[in-house]
Simulated assay, not measured.
Amino acid sequence: MNAQTMTLPADWRDFLALTKPRVMTLVVFTGLCGMLAAPVTIHPVLGFTAVLCIALGAGAAGALNQWYEADLDAKMKRTRGRPLPAGRMDRQSALHFGVGLAIFSVLLMGLAVNLPAAAILTVSILFYVLIYTVWLKRRTPQNIVIGGAAGAFPPLIGWAAATGDIALLPFLLFSLVFLWTPPHFWALALFVKTDYANAGVPMLPVVAGERTTRVQIGLYTLPMAAVAILPWPLGLTGAVYGVSAIVLTAVFGVLALRVATRTTQPDDAMKPEKRLFAWSILYLFAMFGALVADRWMPHA
């Protein structure tokens, strides 16, 4: 029997791995914060349901991404242990699981919460699967730039779940995540460039080189920083968020500048790219946490 068709029985851990739980954590958090930052209070049961739907939708997108990219994952060191390339699950099971999760999450959001939130959730799943995974990922080094919108939808969904509409603040939160994605992901791509090259994925470091990628990280950090701080001067948030945004973004900017201007090759464990990548994750958690703290703290 062909090795590609031999699969071991999948268990619950394999289905969980299909949902990309580590990625889902950030998606769920930003969606929850978007909901908590809204000017109205959602019923706890509906709020829990909305967050559950965001998690299920993100899991569905992750599963469908792995179903479509099983061949790429098999070629990359950091992904070859996933259920499909490792032979612990067949592709049809992953497809059915992903489609089922997607349909259930959207239907539940629409029936239990509201239609605007369900509509944005639908767009986010389709964007990640069809626009990023199917269309962009294998075709252009701008895959992360355009595809970054997929991960930026959760604050919009959370806000819409609470209010039933969209306002300027959640749009700025969407823009923050959208502009954050290229420097975050390109920092990762710089130290796993060989993986992407082996798989034939046209990530920016592979097709344009490390120097161009570092410069682009620095350039994208500038509009990201502006959008991160903008809610405060616009009067959409208070000083708790504003001061936090300035401090956190300043640290991000310093790390991005070190990446952008690096000319030497330090020890692998101390690479500025790894520091920026690690901070970028903490940064988004902290920024959205500050947003919620600002919303719920009493103001004079």
Rank of each mutant, 00 (worst) to 15 (best):
D165H: 14
S175H: 00
R139W: 10
L115A: 14
V192A: 15
L172V: 11
V145H: 01
M224E: 10
I120C: 05
F171E: 04
F178A: 11
L188G: 05
S105R: 05
F191Y: 15
T221I: 03
I103Y: 07
L108S: 10
H184W: 08
W186Y: 09
N143C: 06
P231L: 11
A160Q: 00
L115S: 10
L156C: 06
V177D: 02
V145M: 03
L190D: 00
N143M: 08
L173E: 01
I144L: 09
F127S: 12
A167L: 08
M203V: 07
A149F: 14
L136P: 08
Y196P: 09
S105N: 05
P183C: 02
L136D: 09
A119W: 13
F174D: 03
A161F: 07
P155I: 02
N114F: 04
L101N: 04
T163Y: 14
T181C: 01
W180K: 11
V123T: 14
L179K: 04
P183V: 09
F185C: 05
K137Y: 07
H184T: 03
K137E: 10
H184D: 07
P183W: 00
A167R: 13
T122E: 04
G218L: 11
T163W: 12
G164Q: 03
V123E: 02
F127M: 11
T212W: 00
T181M: 00
G147R: 08
I125E: 12
S124H: 07
I157D: 00
M203T: 02
A160R: 00
L230S: 15
G151M: 08
L168K: 11
A119C: 14
T133H: 06
S105G: 04
P231G: 13
T181Y: 00
W159N: 06
L172H: 12
A228H: 05
